[in-house]
Design a protein around this nucleic acid. Structure first.
Lengths: 343, 343
DNA sequence: AAGCCTATTCAAAGCGTTTTGAATTTCCCT
DNA sequence: AGGGAAATTCAAAACGCTTTGAATAGGCTT
């Protein structure tokens, strides 16, 4: 059933029906009621494609999932992030348009999204240090919000990020106060901006505590269980082994925990461990007390915030470069304790 | 730049340009080359919304993410599944349309997708036992493929599923052959069809091995680390404790592993553990030897297969009810061993 | 060079909305 | 009852594409 048929059936013009349904004031309350009642009963809904064409905009928010070719690593936070984003969008009638692109085709995907007009705006994920895509998106004139920031990009843009620097500085300091001086950092991939900031926060705290940083105690890589295991295992095997760890995700923390057990050590008796906790729904660390001492910030909430920012940009008149910095909370769980005195 | 401008610029009619770009035979090779060259240089791409309207179909595949209200649990397999789906879709120019709905609004979301014509077809996720949505989708005349099956639904429909029954039967038998007789099942939520089938596979193997099933040894719930821990902990505390576990996901297996260590037991010395492994990219169990003995099937592959099935249904003339049953492989890792003889 | 058939190209009519500007109705006032 | 303003309603023109049916150009044959 299309508008023409439906309005014929009602004995009204398409104009009136369209206006009645969109809530314009030029239509009498009586006919509006009649129309919306009939629409409900007969299940009439305006065709979204036609509507988008006439309106010149699509009620859809683009996400481009990047598949680093070959290595098809899906970010574990993706599910929770997108679910938050979808919910925030749904509240205003937006749905999510998901595309996938490898590094080489990403630019052309953005251009296509722009030319085809299939999205009203874009959420950019996992920015790298000096991420080229930000300038590209500005240049293309696409509206976007970045989940994260990109060090080295000087033009203004809109973002939602966690205070990663402060989070890792705080966590490192916490361990230092417990007497730990061999603190291993199991970081995410260095290319990513958030990993970069976390490293800086860690180094800053070490400096403040007058602890010499050691490259042996700093690793970075995919935030998988396996990598967490390998990194922790290596740092426990050093001549002067780590007595505490900072893991970039609960997933790597789980791997580290396995390495600790494998090495015949106890948590938190022999070794301490702090995780960065994205508060993922299927990997909850919200027991009381929490399993892992952690710096926590909900990635779902970040998804919601990012979409809300984007929508205010879409609906707003002027371009705004709103920025939201989320703080983490340090929650103390059962994985940390004072450094064990040897001998 | 739209078609009219672009064709004006080329000194050709919109008709010819449109045909040249869509590869119709009625246009000379010479002009086609000229047109596509110019399109590349000037970055012309047909507006997707207008195209969809004219063609009467959208190049988009719908996924409805269900947010069981309040409890916002995102399925951990979602990321990998959707990434496989997106990739298969992208190969044929389809993008993914993601909507979110809670249980109560799900039906109206389907109706809306149909009425608005915003998707060419739908992928239905995580079917329950006798899932109402299947009949609804048939009735609405939407094309769809189910990821999983639904026991109790008798009408024919298209699906991609793993042989869950066989997988759990095989895993249980494997443990029984190692001498285990107290085998705990840490299952997914019973409402879901896959959990139902897994339970049946487990029971069948027990029967074949002449082991009496015990309700103490069967739990079901969200496939989280926390639940895996709680379930295993309880079964290890029984008067006659479990000596082996089957976990419905690697995530619950990790929780179970923690419970085992917490109870002062060793893996696989004291207790054995088999996981169902979705082969998630960030939770890989592909080390050699694998950490967990597991029944494995890639959920990413399932995503690809489901979308391919859907697209053949969309593009094909007649409605086909293709069905794909994926088999799991049993990979032996370091988490299983013969039952420890006591005393 | 004329004639015919085929290979190209084009103008115009959709697709299902929204929206502009005009036409109609309604209502109130004198 | 008549006139004018305000409140409703409508016809027609976009939006940017595809596609049908008609028109033109091109290539052969005689």
């Amino acid at each position: 059933m299309n508008l023409k048929e439906f309005s014929n059936f009602l004995g009204l013009s398409p104009t009136t029906v369209s206006r009645a349904l969109s809530g314009y004031p030029e239509v009498s309350e009586k006919t509006r009621r009649k129309v919306s009642e009939a629409a409900r009963i007969h299940g009439y809904q305006p065709n979204l494609r036609a509507r988008a064409l006439a309106l010149g905009r699509s009620y859809s928010i683009g996400h481009v999932l990047s598949s680093s070719n070959g290595n098809e690593l899906v970010n574990p936070i993706f599910g929770d992030f997108i679910s938050g984003a979808a919910e925030a969008g749904a509240a205003k009638g937006y749905s999510i348009n998901l595309t996938i692109a490898d590094q080489s085709s990403e630019e052309s995907v953005f251009r296509k999204l722009k030319a085809q007009g299939s999205v009203a705006g874009i959420i950019l994920q996992s920015p790298k240090v000096h991420d080229q895509r930000i300038e590209l998106l500005k240049e293309l004139g696409l509206k976007f919000v970045v989940h994260g920031r990109s060090s080295g990009v000087s033009i203004p843009y809109s973002w939602v990020d966690v205070n990663n620097h402060r989070a890792f500085e705080q966590a490192t300091t916490f361990l230092a106060h417990m007497g730990h001086r061999r603190i291993g950092l199991i970081n995410g991939c260095q290319d990513f901006d958030f990993a970069h900031r976390r490293l800086n926060g860690y180094l800053r705290a070490l400096r403040a505590a007058r602890i010499e940083p050691h490259s042996d105690l700093q690793t970075s890589g995919d935030m998988t269980e396996a990598n967490g295991y390998a990194a922790a295992k290596a740092m426990l095997g050093l001549e002067s082994p780590a007595t505490a760890f900072l893991a970039a995700s609960v997933m790597s923390a789980i791997g580290a925990r396995r390495a600790i057990h494998d090495s015949g050590l106890e948590l938190p008796g022999d070794v301490s461990l702090i995780a960065y906790d994205d508060d993922l729904s299927y990997l909850s660390n919200r027991q009381s007390p929490p399993i892992f001492t952690a710096v926590r910030s909900s990635v779902r909430e970040a998804g919601e915030k990012a979409v809300n920012l984007l929508m205010s940009q879409i609906e707003g008149k002027q371009v705004r470069n709103d920025q939201v910095l989320l703080e983490t909370e340090l929650v103390v769980g059962t994985s940390t304790g004072p450094r064990k005195r040897v001998g």
